[in-house]
């Protein structure tokens, strides 16, 4: 498998306050195609900063970042924007969907900013397919306010997928969701990963990390642990278990 992401001694320092904050201090990391990585750590450990760097939403202070073999550390704003548009799919903890905009139009958004031109029909078609992948094609015309948190996050995943990125990055994708919906989202990720999509996500929940294939742990801006997941959880089985438990507890009919 090819190297999708190569980080070489990445540093990120924030200068905004009185004291410079060393958020990431020397991370070296390689992620190959088809991996499913969870980055864990306490809050303030630099995991979200690392994620933003991976997603080209932020630029490293020092170090080299190779994405799909090309160095992206020194690209300008517009080149980074193109990269986010074409090669990366980013999923946020807070969904970041445009309000009062239908699910379908939210999913279409990255295609409107693509360098290639597509007809309105092509864009619509691709957005529908993308929503289909996350199982929301029946909610295409709903506004975010009419969707549950899990559904909103699935719309965000569909949006991240529409330009067929090399890698899917998710920053605490289940952070705003209850446990059952979290499992549902992890199920979507596992399905996508099984189709060969590389996924990197940040989480602080151990059980969520267990759905991934590889766990990284950060502390004080450094990677302190890198282990493969042995007893990996399967979302479909967990879902079955939750449903059974709920039925027993007479929560659902």
């Amino acid at each position: 498998m090819s190297h999708v992401v190569q980080l070489e001694d990445i540093h990120k320092t924030y200068e905004s306050g009185e004291v410079p904050v060393l958020a990431v201090r020397g991370v070296t990391l390689t992620i190959t195609g088809g991996e499913f990585v969870a980055i864990m750590g306490a809050s303030g450990s630099g995991k979200s900063t690392l994620m933003n760097l991976l997603g080209c939403l932020d630029r490293p202070t020092r170090g080299r970042y190779l994405l799909g073999g090309t160095d992206v550390s020194n690209l300008d704003r517009n080149e980074l924007a193109d990269l986010r548009n074409q090669k990366l799919g980013f999923i946020f903890q807070g969904f970041n969907l445009l309000s009062r905009t239908t699910a379908l139009e939210n999913v279409e958004l990255p295609m409107l900013y693509g360098r290639r031109h597509f007809s309105t029909r092509e864009i619509r078609e691709r957005a529908r397919q993308s929503l289909d992948i996350v199982g929301l094609s029946n909610r295409a015309d709903h506004f975010p306010s009419q969707l549950s948190g899990g559904q909103q996050q699935r719309v965000a995943i569909a949006r991240a997928l529409i330009n067929e990125p090399q890698i899917l990055l998710a920053d605490e994708p289940t952070g705003n969701l209850d446990s059952k919906t979290s499992v549902e989202i992890m199920g979507v990720f596992q399905k996508l990963n099984a189709q060969g999509i590389t996924i990197v996500m940040v989480t602080h929940e151990l059980d969520i990390a267990h759905y991934c294939k590889r766990n990284l742990i950060m502390r004080d801006g450094r990677l302190v642990s890198d282990t493969p997941v042995v007893d990996r959880l399967v979302a479909t089985e967990q879902m079955q278990r939750i449903v059974t438990a709920e039925t027993d507890a007479k929560l659902i009919a």
Partner: peptide
């Protein structure tokens, strides 16, 4: 925030 979302999915400032 809307601008942030647009920039995040690949819009140029222009």
């Amino acid at each position: 925030r809307e601008i942030g979302i647009r920039l995040a999915v690949g819009a140029h400032g222009r």
